[in-house]
Design a protein around this nucleic acid. Structure first.
Lengths: 111, 111
DNA sequence: AATAATACCTAGTAGCACAAAGTATATAGA
DNA sequence: TCTATATACTTTGTGCTACTAGGTATTATT
C-alpha cells in the first residue's frame, strides 16, 4: 500500500462530511474521530488537530452537533463527546446529496 | 431534475481537476470550458468567471497548461485556447489518483 | 528521566471559490 | 434605434477552509 499525500483542496468540505457521517452513527470524541478517519482510509487521509477541532467548534456553533464532557472509565484526560442534532441530520442529508452530485459529475468527466 | 446548489467547499480542487480532465482530451477556451462543465453536470455545477480564469492563469504559471490566442472563424472576440503540457499530464495523473483515494474513502464512510 | 501516545486548544497563514466590477463584440427583440 | 442578452476575457477584494506551529495536561513505555 503506497500512501500518497492528499492535497488539502481535495479535502475541503470532505472532512466535515466524513466527520458528520461518523457522528450520525454514534457519538465520538475528537481524537477518536481523527484516528477513525485515519483507520478507515488505511492511513491515507490524515485530519490534523488544527483542522479537526475548529470544524467541531463551528459545527457546534451552528447547532449541527452538540457535545458533553465525559471522564474516561479508567484514568486519563476527560473527553469531549460530540453527537449530531436533529437539525444536524437534515444538514448532513443535504450535504450528502451535494457530494453525490459532485461524484457523479466527476465520474462522467473522468470517463 | 432538481438542481441543488453545491457548496463551494465541495467544489474546491474538484473544478481544477475537471478542467484538466477536459483539456487533456482536446484544447478548449475558457468560456467553452465553463459551458461544457455546466452541460456535463446537467446544469448543476456552475464555474463562475472569477473562479475559472484565475485557475487557468495559475495552471499556466505552473507550466501545467499553455495557451494560444485564436480568432474565431466568423466574427467575435478572440479566444484563448488552453492545452495540457507533458508536465501537466503527469500532474493530472497524480491529481486523479488523489481524487480516487478520497472517493473510495467517502464511499466506505458513507456505507 | 525521557519519550511517545493520548486529548484538547488556538493564533496566524496560504490557497480556494466567489462576488462584483470592468472591457469589448455580436445578435435578437421591442 | 435602443436595449438586453450572450459571448469572451480580466481583475480586485472577501470569506471560508485546511493547515502550521505553538501551547496545556495526563498516562504509559523505555
Amino acid at each position: 500500500m503506497i500512501t500518497i499525500e492528499i492535497r488539502k483542496e481535495l479535502k475541503s468540505g470532505v472532512i466535515e462530511l466524513a466527520i458528520l457521517a461518523l457522528l450520525v452513527r454514534r457519538e465520538m470524541y475528537g481524537y477518536e474521530l481523527s484516528q477513525k478517519i485515519l483507520d478507515l482510509s488505511s492511513g491515507q487521509i490524515e485530519v490534523k488537530e488544527g483542522t479537526l477541532y475548529p470544524i467541531l467548534y463551528r459545527l457546534e456553533e451552528r447547532g449541527i452537533i452538540t457535545s458533553r464532557w465525559q471522564a474516561p472509565l479508567g484514568r486519563g484526560k476527560p473527553r469531549k463527546y460530540y453527537y449530531v442534532t436533529g437539525k444536524g441530520r437534515q444538514y448532513f442529508a443535504g450535504y450528502r446529496k451535494e457530494w453525490n452530485v459532485v461524484v457523479e459529475f466527476m465520474c462522467k468527466i473522468l470517463e
